[in-house]
Simulated assay, not measured.
Amino acid sequence: MVRQENPTASGSPKLRTAERTRTAKLGFLDEKLSFHPKIIQNVPDFSRLHKALQTEVLRKTQIKDVTKCQPFCLRTSALPARQRTMSPENSQVSNISRSKSKSLGALSSLSTDTLPTYITDAERKRCMAIRKSMEIRDSKNQESSDWLRKYQMRSQAMKKTVVLHAKLLDPHSSLNEVYNEKLQQHREADQQRTREYMKELQEMKTRVSERPYLFQQVKQKNAKAHAEQIYRNKLKKAGLKEQFVEENGKAVEGVSSSTSFRSGDDGGSTENDTHNREENVDNWEKIEDVEEESVKSKGEEMP
């Protein structure tokens, strides 16, 4: 029979090795701490400690002596003058050096303790170079300002020319002309409205002045109604109707207008026409009599 191996028994050495490794690495966690910090229960007086520290610093400071310079003497004036060759290019420098000879002689007469001060060749050349560079810079600035002024003048002249050509080629009117035209139109419209308003106001005043007062209107209305009533009563007494009177009046007007066109015409008249005309004339006479009576009665009643 084949012996079966227990997997747990075969894996136990590995587990023991891992346990030992873990114990070796993390064993310090199980150890008791040997360091115990000292805990101060009382709060220190920091202001007193600061004053004590300042006092200690002042006590430890040591006053150091100031460094004193020893007197010295430069005997530059006793040195012999340097000889240098003169070139035609440095003629201007030679002239300046000759003019400075008096100052050099005066420097030689000074005491040995005095430090001489005179212009060297390097300093003189440096001054000349600085002066020359300043002159060049000024000339460049002047040239740039002249060029800028000329450029502005050319730009203005070109701008005027371009504007003139644009106006000549542009079919539309300019804004200034359009503005003036619109302004003139608005002014004329305002004047026209003002004239119309004044005209309407004058007509209104005329109507108000010509219109009778209210009591006069009432009086005229009452008189008209009274006259119409009298006229109707007269027609009723005469046995006539208003419609009949209106028709006869229109007929008489038509006959009078037709007779003016038929003057000189001999034929065309019949006995029936003459009879009707006579009847219309009689009726018209009756109407006139009634109107005269109504007018007379109205005049008598009016105050």
Rank of each mutant, 00 (worst) to 15 (best):
S263H: 08
D146I: 08
N95T: 03
K160Y: 07
R48Y: 05
Q191N: 13
A227E: 13
E123P: 02
E271I: 06
L148V: 14
L175C: 10
D289N: 07
N283Y: 06
S109N: 03
Q217C: 08
Q243K: 12
E271R: 11
S294N: 01
E196L: 13
M134V: 08
Q62H: 03
L240D: 06
F46H: 07
L148P: 01
S257Q: 14
K60L: 09
H172M: 09
D113Q: 06
R193V: 11
S144Y: 09
T21D: 15
K159N: 11
S294A: 12
S263N: 14
R126N: 06
S294H: 00
I119Q: 10
K132G: 02
K241A: 08
T114I: 09
M198R: 14
Y151A: 14
N90W: 01
L104T: 03
N283L: 03
P116S: 00
S260A: 15
E300I: 04
E210D: 08
Q62L: 06
E56Y: 02
V245P: 00
G267Q: 15
R98V: 05
P44K: 00
N272S: 12
G11W: 04
Y151K: 14
A238C: 03
K64H: 05
T17F: 04
S97V: 13
V163S: 14
T21V: 08
V208H: 11
K296G: 02
S173E: 11
M302A: 12
T112K: 05
E300M: 04
N272H: 11
L168M: 15
I96F: 05
P88Q: 00
Q41M: 02
I39Q: 03
E56P: 00
S260H: 04
G254Q: 15
N283C: 09
R232P: 03
K100D: 14
E19K: 03
M158R: 12
R20V: 01
